[in-house]
Design a protein around this nucleic acid. Structure first.
Lengths: 245, 245
DNA sequence: TGACCGGACCTGTCATGACAGGTATCGTCA
DNA sequence: TGACGATACCTGTCATGACAGGTCCGGTCA
């Protein structure tokens, strides 16, 4: 691991354990240089990373200041429900309701960038958090990836971790967050009345080549899950508010 | 404006106008150095910024590659509905339903970090996008800031811009996104049936000193607005998924 | 023809040095 | 005692140089 990553992770750790609390000032750059026996480069790179994450702010004459205690989660926490639950110290559970190979319907085909009717593998899972119903997951995989799932017990854990172990490497993902009314399927499995509000996270995941591999439509029980973000003046946030046409 | 900012903005602009499309490779660092007659430092800093924004990816032997066409919006786009609408080329409208000075109720007091019963100024506005109903905004300001609003015509435009012009400087903000059922008030003004799903964005905005100034509870009509995010392997995202206890 | 290897090129990483500009503190002077 | 100004310190910014490691292409050899 590169030095600047070590430094950044060390500071994140200090925040995590409460050694650095919100509002407390970090050591100055020169002190950090001495502490890590490095030049100013890696130290500044580490601070820049933390600044881009919205963890620290300030500067310009003042030493940097911690401005949040919520440490951004790594890549997989937004992609893998299991990895996320583990990261926050909760337990994830799942019950597979369906695993099917079928032609892509008109809704998912454009999301995956494939022709309507091309074969896809679809998984329907009910997901739990600490044993409580939390989310209904509709996952669609392109055929050559989805086929791997027939050798996997989807009840046993993370599909994402399994696919990674089989050499499927996710690299980028797009997320869309909105609210929808529970349809009959949601209603049945999440045990809410039809039409009641659900928080939806749609996502498409791609490999480094840009090939779309999976499309998710995850619907959370409000009251169980939400999304949050810290926002500072000097950093452009990757979260965007969109208007639908 | 610093050179690295100029370079970053220039690349963003090239993406905006379509000169650089998704998947197309950027010029190499050395070419950019020559183009801007600068050393490698500013160029790398610009690329690092864009990478943190999730705009470009790649590297490590390969020249960087554009991986999204959605350019992150600056700070104010997540805080000001009017600024956001302008940024995406839509028109924002508003009708003020209420402007009141009253004691803080038990819901907003903890959000603002003030005592229950301390006075706050609350604004209720119905907001339009291109003339269509889009969102019901419940804004609460601490007294000394909110008082400024009594000198302002809330129907005329951006409260945020007005407060800035009066010297109120926002610096950081926290956002929580979830889904809620329309309550009677939502139902009446957004013209949906009670209990139907709404996308909610709660936010608290603070000054550089950390003083909380405003709390918003904005409820969007789903189908009008959503939130989106690009996510890459090597960058920690500031968006977090949270479990409610 | 296909596999393999080497070199050109690129980025990642780090060191060192330098100057400008903002911040805060402390001492001085009115 | 209070206001003001100089100074030390800090960060922002940029230049230059260097080496390691990854990628890609083309040429060579089997």
């Amino acid at each position: 691991m590169a030095l600047h990553e070590v430094i950044a992770e060390s500071i994140r750790e200090q925040i995590r354990v409460g050694e650095l609390t919100i509002g407390s000032a970090l050591p100055s750059e020169s002190q950090l240089c001495e502490r890590w026996k490095s030049s100013r480069g890696p130290v500044r790179q580490a601070l820049a990373t933390l600044r881009a994450e919205g963890v620290i702010t300030g500067g310009s004459g003042k030493p940097p200041v911690v401005c949040t205690t919520s440490i951004p989660q790594p890549f997989d926490s937004l992609l893998s429900y299991s990895a996320w639950a583990r990261a926050i110290g909760r337990s994830a559970g799942q019950r597979t309701l369906e695993l099917a190979l079928r032609p892509a319907d008109p809704l998912v085909a454009p999301k995956l960038g494939i022709d309507e009717g091309a074969r896809v593998v679809q998984v329907l899972r009910l997901r739990y958090l600490d044993g409580e119903r939390a989310m209904l997951e509709r996952a669609t995989f392109v055929e050559h990836v989805g086929r791997l799932l027939f050798d996997f017990d989807c009840d046993s854990g993370s599909i994402w971790a399994y696919l990674q172990s089989r050499g499927v490497n996710f690299s980028t993902a797009s997320h869309i967050i909105d609210a929808v009314a529970a349809d009959p399927l949601d209603s049945e499995h999440l045990e809410v009345t039809e039409g009641s509000p659900l928080l939806r996270q749609q996502r498409t995941a791609r490999t480094a080549d840009g090939e779309v591999i999976e499309y998710h439509d995850d619907r959370y029980l409000p009251g169980m899950v939400s999304f949050s973000l810290e926002n500072t003046l000097d950093v452009r946030t990757s979260l965007m508010r969109n208007a639908k046409p």
